[in-house]
């Protein structure tokens, strides 16, 4: 008796079993859907709505449809009182992309050798090395940037060291693009190392041997075997570094001295002193749109490569 009754729901009706699993996956995924909805989609929807609202006199906004936020990116009242084309925001956007691109490139140059080195260690040491790469994440980002201020600043670690080596005293490496870039590369490096490491580790060592057997020298092996096979990891790392770099505020302000605005600080200014929330939201939406286009483009390209194989 027990066998029969127990079997009944599953064995007699296949369809109800499928429904059971469908239900299960629905309820199982519900928490993630809710999280995505409330923590990601809803806030973006709010920003999108604010970007087409009308600004309040002292900050805030009213729900009247208005595209002034977007038109302000290109056209503003000049000092003569006429509406004119203003390239200043485009310059800020271009500068931000340049900085993010440079950060990604430098991270890549450092991360590939590091990841390769880690992947060639015995398993026990590998775990420790990967752990060490992630270690900075346990410390607040602002503290890590402050640490760099102590290293590079006047009477800091590096100037002191150089002074002891005979360089003139009183040097400072702060408040320039190099300082900004140093802190940015340091901050985002783990995000590049980890995905690159994951793909290098999967690399079959015998393929490298095969390449050498076929008279491929080191350079050819790197270019024709290692890089193509690790491309997905490199791409993932590049996206993980590039996208958050676009929104960087801390490093340009603290290390660069805030002398030139980035998109992050421009958006911040609109919600703060600028008291122009719709404009700030419009820049944020523009930034997001550009990033999305960039991501879709790379996704399509890698998909095309996959099918080509």
């Amino acid at each position: 008796m027990t066998m029969d009754t127990l079997h009944l729901p599953f064995a007699t009706k296949r369809a109800s079993g499928a429904r059971f699993w469908r239900n299960l996956s629905f309820w199982g995924l519900l928490p993630s859907w809710l999280l995505m909805g409330f923590a990601l989609i809803l806030p973006i929807a709010i920003i999108a709505a604010v970007s087409v609202a009308t600004r309040g006199a002292h900050g805030g906004f009213t729900w009247d449809f208005n595209l002034a936020g977007y038109s302000q990116i290109l056209f503003n009242e000049g000092w003569t009182g006429e509406l004119e084309f203003t390239p200043q925001y485009l310059m800020i956007i271009a500068r931000t992309f340049l900085l993010a691109g440079a950060t990604t490139l430098i991270c890549l140059l450092f991360a590939v050798p590091v990841a390769y080195f880690i992947s060639r260690q015995p398993p026990s040491q590998k775990a420790i090395l990967v752990y060490l790469v992630t270690l900075p994440f346990w410390v607040s980002m602002i503290l890590r940037v402050y640490a760099w201020m102590i290293i590079l600043g006047k009477e800091g670690t590096l100037p002191r060291l150089l002074e002891n080596l005979g360089f003139p005293p009183g040097m400072s490496f702060m408040f320039n693009d190099g300082a900004t870039l140093t802190a940015m590369v340091y901050t985002y490096m783990p995000l590049m190392v980890l995905p690159v490491f994951a793909s290098i580790e999967k690399l079959d060592g015998t393929l490298i041997e095969a390449s050498h057997d076929l008279y491929g020298d080191r350079w050819v092996t790197l270019r024709r075997v290692i890089l193509p096979l690790t491309a997905p990891g490199i791409l993932a790392g590049a996206i993980l570094v590039f996208v958050p770099s676009l929104g960087a505020v801390l490093e340009p302000t603290l290390m660069g001295g805030g002398k030139q605005m980035m998109m992050g600080s421009l958006i911040q200014l609109q919600f703060g002193g600028g008291r122009n929330w719709p404009f700030g939201a419009a820049i944020a939406m523009t930034l997001m749109a550009v990033v999305l286009i960039f991501l879709i483009f790379t996704a399509l390209r890698s998909a095309r490569k996959e099918t080509a194989k």
């Binding site: 503003n76 925001y89 800020i92 030139q260 600080s265 200014l269 600028g274 008291r275």
Partner: peptide, 9 residues
């Protein structure tokens, strides 16, 4: 705001 943005543009 305009003065500040142009200063730091």
């Amino acid at each position: 705001n305009r003065v500040w943005t142009q200063l730091l543009q």
